[in-house]
Every structure is written in C-alpha cells, then in structure tokens.
Amino acid sequence: MAFIDLTSLGKSFGPTPVVRDFDLALHQGEFVSLLGPSGCGKTTVLRMVAGFETPDSGDIRIEGQSLLRQRASQRQIGMVFQSYALFPNMTVADNVAFGLRVAKLAPAQIDKRVDEMLDMVGLAAMKGRYPYQLSGGQQQRVALARAIAPRPRVLLLDEPLSALDAKIRVALRTEIRTIQRQLGITTLFVTHDQEEALSMSDRIVIMNAGRAEQIGTPEEIYNRPTTRFVAGFIGTLNVIEGQLGTEGGTVLTCAGGRLALPGTFGASPGETLSVAVRPQSLRPAPIDGDGLRGTVRHVEFLGAFTRLHVSCGPNTLLVDCFARDLAANLSVGSQIALTVPPDEVLRLSA
C-alpha cells in the first residue's frame, strides 16, 4: 500500500474541468513533482490534498484513511507558497513557532524546535527579524521551516522557487532536497520549470489539461517521453510524422525522406506515426546517402555545439552538432542530409 493515494480525482470550476480522472500513489519519503504548463491543474491537485479545495469526485487517502472529511487544519499537512506568505506581524521565530503554539506544545519544547528548524535552514541569526527585513530567499527558508516545524505527515510545495532570482533558486533546490531527505518527509512539489523537476524529484508527473500525461523517474521522462505533449514539454525535441513501411527493414516515410526504425517498432505497416528525435541525435550525413534531406535555414553558434535549423518539407528540424562533424562549406542555403541511429527514435502515442 502506498503512503498517499490519490484516486480518480476530479474537479471543475464552473463548467470547465481543471482536474480529470487523476491517479497518483506516493511512497513514504518520496519526492514527487507535478510538472506542467500553467493552467494544467497541478496547483488544484495540491490544494485538494491540502484541503483548500474539495474534489468533485475521487478520494485522497493517507495510510489508507480518507482525508476528505477532515478540514485543512486537521490534516497535518505542511504547505509552502510561492509568495512565502509569512505572517508580517510576527518575527521569524514567531512565524516558525506558529504551528507549535496552535498545537499547544510546551514553551520550552517550542523554543527548542524553533532553534532546531532555524538551524536547519541556516537562519538562526535572523530569529528576531521581521519578514520585511529578509530577502526573498531567506523568507522562503523561513516558510519552509515553519511548514515542517510541526512535523507534518506530508509537505506540499507550491512553486516555492518561482519568485526567486536564478542563483538563489538553484541553491535552494539542493537545500530543500537535502532537508527533505534528512527528515524523510513525503513531498509533493508543483512547478512549471522542468529543470527544477528533473533535478529534484524521485518521480515526475507531467500534467496536461487536468490529466497525468506520464508518470516516471526523471530519466524515464527525459529519455522516453510517451506522448507528443511530454516530448514537446521536456527539452527541445523534433516531432516527425510519417507512415510506417517495411522495405528493407522498418522505415518511416516522412517529409524529406525516410528514417530507419529499430525492430518492428511495435506498429503495423501502413500506420501513421509520430516519433520524436532529439536535436543531438540527428547527424549530418553525405548528401547522396540515406536519410532526411533538407535546406539549412539558419546557423546558430552556441559555444560547445552549433545548432542548425533545417527545413525539411513543412517541418523545421533542430540539429545540434559539434564543430568537427560539420562540413566546412556548410552555410545558410546549403543542402544537407540527416540520419538518426534507429534506437534513438522515440515513439509517441499521440
């Protein structure tokens, strides 16, 4: 049995469904990200777990017990908001102590726990300051300390890094993950930043239009996207559409030529397919050989590699190659051929 079970959750605001048929199981101590564009329903899922929204259908269980009849204040769930939401009238220490005071812990115990938490986020020296005297990164650390001080069963993080500067964002990523591991607290993290999700999570849920498109480890999501949406959302992928044929092995006939595919590719001849190819999987090849033919439209020098924009029929393909792989006379307007190692072609379901 999983620690947290979300089963067929559904929620509509007025006539528009924002979360549809959403299933997710989290193990104890796991760090799971909900990743998707804005409006995909990820925050709504989080808010339903927290108890700020009531699902129209489905159930939320922790250790087998349904949460739906409990109010937010009874659920023992810690939450961190994008906007920090520190209480402006209280010092850092008072903010962290809030949940402990509400739970009526003994004053000595409260002091001890507050010190412990502030030590953990490295803000012991800021104890007596007010939120408006802190930087954004410091405020978010306090918010984190406040959320975990009462030892919640689950930690919910709603885009906690989005309001911060790039540098602090990266530093805080590591810090959050370290603290999460140290406490072993089951965490649900909402973000629209794929780098954040890939670098922090045990597992990622890619959400689109209220549904989970794909659930998997960061490696799975990155290397084997299963749908067109995931392929488009994670990294820069070229999506190519074509028809499956079998002359001389499995091949995909598409605009600009043909692509060799591994094995039978799990499809039957004649079928129309979408496949994804990473820019670094496309390699320039001799113009008279096999592969896709196109015209170079634009050459971008990006330091470690060069990115070509190649028009191939109606598509524009992005090709990343190292300088040594490029023909010296390549320039805008040149004809070029491209090949892909068959096992680097990813099949997409829709």
Binding site: A50, G51, F52, R71, A72, S73, Q74, R75, Q76, I77, G78, M79, F81, S83, A85, F87, F98, G99, V102, A103, A143, R146, A147, P150, P152, L156
Partner: peptide
C-alpha cells in the same frame, strides 16, 4: 489580508 495567510494558518492547524 492575503488568502495565503489564512491557508497557511489553517494548514498549520489553526482554527
């Protein structure tokens, strides 16, 4: 008065 304050307080167990 921001809605998040109320929600934070609630999730920390406050009535």
């Amino acid at each position: 008065l921001r809605g998040e304050w109320r929600e934070t307080a609630e999730s920390l167990g406050a009535s």
